[in-house]
């Protein structure tokens, strides 16, 4: 196998993988954080929504990708289906940590904020979200790292990414190919973990 060709392929699949993860996490954030906030206001919905997110996490990833293929609009072969599956996985940690982070704001702090005449929006933006930021970011970190791993399976349904190497390597019993997929994926996970962890620590200045 010629080396420059492999390197170019690694770079291409890594960036494909990265974009796949980025889009999935962005969508999971856009759904998970508002949904988490909503759940702090609507205790009745908590069991149901958290239950759904929990069940999604327990479905084996390969099976979930398989289940989604026959579903119209979101299913089929390709990136779209992969993203839907990855969003479903990333949702729980983000949703749960948003909920827990806001609920663990000291009751006395919340009561003071209300008693001083903050509106609901001011309470959320100036008190609840800043105080919950660390916990929410911890959830985002967990979601990102697991998504980087799970995204390797996207290749099984034509989603591309570093999984291409891994599946090809398994099929052809070629360790180099498997490593060409696994090593960049692991590096990507480590870098994201460290990066988000660093941001998280900056919020510890309470």
């Amino acid at each position: 196998m010629n080396r420059p060709g492999l390197l170019r392929e690694i770079l291409q699949h890594t960036s494909e993988h990265f974009v796949l993860v980025l889009i999935s996490i962005a969508i999971a954030l856009a759904i998970g954080i508002p949904a988490g906030i909503l759940l702090t206001r609507r205790p009745m919905l908590r069991t149901g929504v958290l239950g759904f997110a929990n069940v999604m996490q327990t479905v084996p990833s390969l099976a979930l990708f398989g289940f989604l293929i026959p579903i119209p609009l979101i299913g089929g072969i390709g990136k779209r289906t992969a993203i839907v599956a990855l969003v479903l996985y990333a949702l729980l940690p983000i949703l749960r940590n948003t909920l827990v982070g806001i609920l663990s704001v000291e009751p006395a702090v919340r009561e003071s904020a209300i008693a001083m005449g903050m509106t609901g929006r001011q309470l959320l933006q100036q008190v609840e979200l800043p105080l919950a930021a660390r916990t929410i970011l911890a959830g985002v970190r967990v979601a990102t790292v697991t998504t980087i791993g799970t995204a390797t399976i996207a290749a099984a349904i034509g989603g591309g990414g570093l999984g291409e190497f891994i599946f090809r390597g398994i099929a052809s019993v070629d360790t180099t190919q498997i490593l060409a997929g696994a090593v960049p994926a692991a590096l990507l996970a480590l870098i994201s973990d460290g990066g988000i962890g660093w941001i998280e620590k900056r919020f510890s200045a309470v």
Binding site: V109, E111, S112, I114, A115, G117
Partner: peptide, 21 residues
């Protein structure tokens, strides 16, 4: 209007409830 009412009333509680951030 409760928001207006509360902004005109000072409130001090045992736990103080200062904003830690």
């Amino acid at each position: 209007d409760l928001i207006q009412l509360r902004r005109g009333i000072g409130y001090v509680i045992q736990e103080v409830g200062l904003f830690p951030h």
